[in-house]
Amino acid sequence: MKCELKHTTIHYEIHGNGKPVLLLHGFSCDHHLMTGCMEPVFKSQSGWKRIYPDLPGMGDSTVTDGIQSTDDMLEALDEFVGEILGDEPFILAGESYGGYLSRGLLKKRQHQIEGLLLICPTAGQAKHDAPAFQLIARDEEFMSQLNHPDTGEFSGMHTVQDEYNWSRFEREIVTGLKKANRPFLERLRQRYDFSPEMEQLDTPYVKPVLILAGRQDHIVGYRNQWAFANEYPRASFVMLDRAGHNLQIEQSRLFRVLVEEWLDRVTEEQEAKHSQAKESVTRMRSI
């Protein structure tokens, strides 16, 4: 599907029916990053409509000179939400740069967002506080036989290197990297950080939140992510060992369990809200 906007044409996919979930991938990737890790979760979850866009200049989404910064990206994303969802409540999930944009979108649409998932979210380039790359596990036999142009990219990114991790990296990450508009992304890096006024919420966000961080994430680290958790009264913060910036792949079993628990909390919150609304109507009618 395509959504024509002022400065971009957004390509997106919709899976399933029910309550909307907007899922945002990371910098230079495309929607396959999020479908790869989230669709297995939703196989055991009914009643969710998953919306997977390619961000402007990535995947099959186009971009014009009207987008020069992350502030501009956020405006385009906000326009996309307005076109696709209007004022309908939804939950939001973002990975890395998609997590950064999610935090900006939360500032704009806090009243509308009923749950937030952040997977290895960036805090902006200026605030990266990350450890050095660390290799935790490597299948030497498989890696010695891997002959692929993107082997180096994989070896420099993954803290766990084996056939399973490679196959998902190739399918979910490399797919997007090959389509990315490189000149646009290089310009965007120069204005990657939000304007200061976008960094803080006006009021506390009290809906269910899950923040996942990799102990070996050498791209964005885990320290800033703990600071994010302190901003949200209903946040679970989980830092996983044996996990780098592609935590959703390297710790796939724990990832699935943790995201399912977050969805349970979101559902519980929504059901409590609906129950309170019904009780309020009943009381009004009895007056």
Score class of each variant (00 low, 15 high):
154 F>C: 11
149 P>M: 08
171 R>D: 10
44 S>N: 14
83 E>D: 09
238 V>Q: 11
64 T>G: 07
13 E>S: 14
108 K>V: 03
257 V>E: 12
205 Y>E: 06
111 H>D: 15
148 H>S: 14
235 A>G: 08
55 L>R: 01
129 D>P: 02
106 L>Q: 07
272 A>N: 14
156 G>A: 08
204 P>K: 13
194 F>R: 03
263 L>P: 06
221 G>M: 04
229 A>H: 12
222 Y>G: 05
84 I>T: 12
256 R>N: 13
95 E>R: 00
76 A>E: 14
188 L>N: 00
66 G>P: 13
236 S>Q: 13
137 A>N: 07
27 F>Y: 15
95 E>I: 01
116 L>I: 13
286 S>G: 05
129 D>C: 07
287 I>Q: 09
268 E>V: 05
57 G>K: 09
245 H>C: 08
287 I>R: 05
124 G>Y: 01
94 G>A: 06
163 E>F: 07
187 R>C: 01
39 E>N: 08
226 W>D: 08
97 Y>E: 04
126 A>Y: 00
231 E>I: 02
165 N>Y: 01
54 D>P: 05
107 K>N: 11
44 S>C: 03
178 K>R: 15
253 R>F: 11
93 A>M: 13
41 V>N: 04
38 M>K: 00
174 V>S: 06
100 Y>N: 02
34 M>D: 11
276 Q>H: 05
232 Y>N: 06
2 K>C: 05
103 R>L: 12
62 T>D: 12
129 D>S: 11
245 H>S: 06
277 A>C: 03
151 T>I: 09
247 L>A: 08
242 R>D: 09
186 E>D: 14
229 A>F: 09
276 Q>L: 08
182 R>K: 14
129 D>K: 12
210 L>P: 07
271 E>H: 06
199 E>G: 03
231 E>K: 11
253 R>D: 15
53 P>R: 01
84 I>G: 02
196 P>N: 08
44 S>V: 04
101 L>F: 00
112 Q>A: 13
158 H>M: 15
201 L>R: 10
283 R>P: 02
218 H>K: 11
23 L>I: 07
259 V>P: 12
278 K>F: 08
253 R>S: 13
272 A>L: 12
121 P>H: 04
218 H>Y: 04
94 G>W: 00
169 F>R: 06
202 D>N: 13
279 E>A: 13
133 F>V: 05
35 T>R: 13
268 E>Q: 13
156 G>Y: 09
127 K>G: 03
199 E>D: 15
237 F>K: 07
273 K>A: 10
269 E>V: 02
253 R>G: 07
240 L>E: 05
33 L>I: 04
101 L>V: 02
171 R>K: 15
87 D>K: 12
113 I>C: 08
45 Q>V: 15
269 E>Y: 10
178 K>D: 04
80 F>T: 00
16 G>H: 02
60 D>W: 03
187 R>H: 10
26 G>L: 01
168 R>Y: 10
136 I>D: 08
67 I>W: 06
61 S>K: 08
254 L>W: 10
197 E>I: 03
121 P>C: 07
138 R>N: 09
279 E>L: 14
280 S>R: 13
67 I>H: 04
29 C>P: 01
145 Q>F: 06
281 V>K: 10
